[in-house]
């Protein structure tokens, strides 16, 4: 009996030391593991925006029937660098699920995760069509400036209107002003804006709205401006 207790206590000591070691390793690895899992879960978002951490944004999505989820993309330092959208569009043959990324006042990418459109029709043009969204200014009208896939007008329109709605949301709710709009430089509002501080950026958004028509005509130039400004800002941050 006494021996059993003695052995039990010794075994407990071994287990205790083992548990301590595991606690230390867990403390070190928990964060990278969470990041990896997050990246795996949000592979479609990584594809359109880049390798960031995606945190779901809570918020009212009434009026945005095509948006299923909004995510804030955070870099390793925890700063918001852009927004990613999960969208659902009514295509010709049913629901089209897609994701879109917005950063620095420009669209970073659009990709389709699932669809039930007619096979062959338009699917070959899909890559070119989706790639055409890349770099357009993040204002809702610009999405319609992308040429439709011939023979797949309904699918094209569905995707264009879904992307357009995402951009509208980015501008109006998240206050990510279209590039080159208003008195405030876009970069200052875009990446740094937290969803809670919308009141301050309301003015910017309005200004951006007036500038939209101009922006739509010169999307490429605007995107470049934003990119240049962003690089400048990044440089300042590093310094």
């Amino acid at each position: 009996m006494r021996e059993t207790v003695k052995l039990g206590i010794r075994l407990m000591l071994f287990a205790l030391v083992a548990a301590l070691m595991l606690a230390v390793v867990n403390g070190v690895t928990a964060d990278p593991i969470a990041k990896n899992e997050n990246r795996k879960m949000n592979a479609s978002l990584v594809a359109v925006l880049g390798d960031y951490l995606f945190e779901p944004l809570e918020g009212d999505l009434t009026g945005y029937d095509k948006i299923t989820a909004v995510y804030a993309a955070k870099d390793d330092a925890g700063a918001t660098v852009g927004y990613a959208y999960e969208l659902s569009a009514d295509g010709y043959g049913g629901e089209i699920k897609l994701s879109a990324g917005v950063r620095d006042g420009a669209v970073t990418g659009v990709s389709v995760s699932s669809h039930t459109e007619t096979k062959g029709l338009g699917t070959s043009a899909q890559d070119t069509f989706l790639a055409a969204f890349q770099g357009i200014a993040a204002n809702p009208d610009a999405a319609f400036g992308v040429d439709a896939m011939s023979g797949a007008t309904v699918s094209s329109n569905a995707i264009r209107s879904a992307v357009s709605q995402a951009l509208q949301h980015a501008n109006e709710v998240l206050g990510m002003a279209g590039a080159g709009g208003g008195t405030t430089p876009p970069v200052e509002t875009a990446p740094a804006t937290e969803p809670e501080t919308d009141a301050t950026t309301g003015a910017t958004t309005e200004a951006a709205a007036t500038a939209e028509t101009e922006a739509a005509e010169e999307p490429a130039a605007d995107a470049t401006t934003a990119a240049t400004a962003a690089t400048g800002a990044a440089g300042v941050k590093e310094g």
Partner: peptide, 12 residues
């Protein structure tokens, strides 16, 4: 367990 956690964290 240590190997598993380290691999999960750094070699996903």
């Amino acid at each position: 367990s240590i190997v598993e956690m380290v691999m999960h964290a750094y070699f996903p």
